[in-house]
């Protein structure tokens, strides 16, 4: 792989392992591990989307799980009505329709809430993004038709021609392709003119405004792209779990997404994926051992923040301080 930089080689290596290992699990019939990998990949998409605004935009959103919920319900609600009738205009098992609904609904929610949240700064921004996410949470808790806080079973997965998401390996591969596309897109965006403005506004907003950039609009645009991408992750998660509930968008879920991004390394291409991998794998094994499995995460996060400013991705590239 001559011609690739060290960090590009690491990215390709990690992404290759992430593709090959689950296929091996599937080949050898270890469905449990395949399903773990699928969840990992889907959460990685959400973390990649959060990294766009948190890592590159410096916008500490504590409400990103709302988009996962919106995306998941955008699959669950049409599927529910397709089975039980009612709401004919959205009742459908068509995957394209459901995905489009997930992305558009998440984008619209991001546009409306972002327009308000981005008027605030610092800790107010954190609180208000969290408040909007809790609003969505309680909204779905209150709708009995969709199970309230008991949640909703998705009886039929999104239907696509030729692609059958009921097969675990297919769902994994689809999720993996979406992850790679999401990483590519975020990488392209942050290196584009738009991304330069976004990163400059993070580093020094006054300076960026003084240059003639309406940083509010740039941030809002990034916020909407990020929300839409996370909505897509939510649609995949709905298909994966075939069960959705407001618990998916609880504030602690948003905290977990932040954890993944920060642990893995903010403003890096691979960071969110590494963070999601560590989170999913470690949470799985620790939660079998103890109910206090959150504690080691806290310690891990403190260690990374204190000793490795670039997160896990920084350590891999040999840049940990």
């Amino acid at each position: 792989m001559i011609g690739f930089s060290r960090s590009a080689r690491i990215n390709i290596g990690v992404m290759a392992i992430l593709a090959i290992l689950p296929v091996f699990f599937w080949w050898t019939g270890q469905t449990f591990y395949l399903s773990l990998a699928t969840r990992l990949v889907i959460l990685a998409i959400a973390a990649v989307s959060l990294n766009l605004i948190l890592g590159y935009g410096g916008l500490i959103s504590f409400g990103h799980a709302a988009y996962i919920g919106i995306g998941a319900y955008a699959v669950g609600i049409p599927a529910h009505h397709a089975l039980y009738g009612g709401m004919d205009f959205i009742a459908s098992n068509n995957g394209f329709f459901q995905i489009a609904l997930a992305v558009v609904a998440a984008a619209v929610f991001a546009l409306i809430t972002g327009a308000i949240c981005l008027r605030t700064k610092g800790v107010y921004f954190i609180m208000i993004t969290m408040a909007f996410a809790q609003m969505v949470y309680y909204f779905f808790v209150s709708i009995e038709e969709y199970g309230g806080d008991d949640g909703l079973v998705i009886d039929t997965r999104s239907e696509f021609p030729l692609v059958n998401l009921d097969q675990p390996i297919v769902l994994f591969l689809v999720s993996y392709v979406v992850l790679v596309l999401a990483m590519w897109l975020v990488n392209a965006i942050v290196n584009s003119r738009f991304g330069m403005v976004l990163q400059s506004a993070k580093g020094n907003n006054d300076r960026t405004v003084t240059l003639g950039y309406n940083t509010y609009l740039y941030r809002l645009t990034a916020y909407v792209i990020s929300g839409a991408m996370c909505g897509l992750a939510g649609a995949l998660l709905g298909n994966f779990a075939t069960f959705i509930s407001p618990e998916m968008m609880d504030w602690s879920r948003s905290g977990e997404l932040m954890f993944m991004v920060i642990l893995g390394g903010t403003a890096t291409a691979l960071g969110p994926v590494l963070g999601a991998a560590v989170f999913v794998v470690v949470a799985q094994f620790l939660s079998e051992l103890t109910i206090y499995w959150h504690l080691p995460f806290g310690l891990m996060l403190i260690a990374v923040v204190l000793f490795a400013r670039g997160g896990l991705s920084g350590i891999l590239r040999g840049k940990g301080s």
Binding site: A188, R193, F194, M196, V197, Q199, G203, N204, R207
Partner: peptide, 26 residues
């Protein structure tokens, strides 16, 4: 008042970019 995390060239390029039409180019 500069963007300390960016390179010197990136800082200045951003000022040039501002004179080169809008930057909603992705």
């Amino acid at each position: 008042s500069l963007v300390m995390d960016m390179s010197v060239l990136d800082n200045v390029a951003l000022a040039v970019q501002a004179t080169d039409g809008h930057s909603f180019k992705f």
